[in-house]
Amino acid sequence: MVTSAYWRTRLHRYRLVGNRCAVCGKAFFPPRLVCSYCGSTKLEECKLPERGRLVEYTVVYSAPKGYDVVVPYVVGIVELENGVRVVAQITDVDVNEVKEGMEVELTIRKLPEQLEGGMICYTYKFRPVIG
């Protein structure tokens, strides 16, 4: 990943910060420049809930470079408690135990290191709820 792009998006990645339309109230993740519901450009940063439900998922066996050590892995759509849907990797699960509807929560994990000596990127993922 390009260092500047990672740095620019770090708060979204580390804290699940999205934005909300000041006119119609819809929330988005990742943040949008224009509200896709009412077309407003007045959007305000907002922290999203950290828990949700796995709506849909797929198992990745043919992965991009760098991800070969984590194959097979799960990518899913998580519906957060406020209804916002986030596409993310589901971690700490075996592929045969993932179920639609399972309760998941935010965790910050590293992405595979793609370049020797390169930057380590951390980002949002979801895992089964602990405790």
């Binding site: 580390y14 700490d92 965790t107 994990r109 595979p112």
Partner: peptide
């Protein structure tokens, strides 16, 4: 530690 974990991710948790 899993393949996506290190001292930083554990510290954040």
């Amino acid at each position: 530690a899993g393949p996506d974990e290190d001292a930083v991710t554990i510290a954040i948790e």
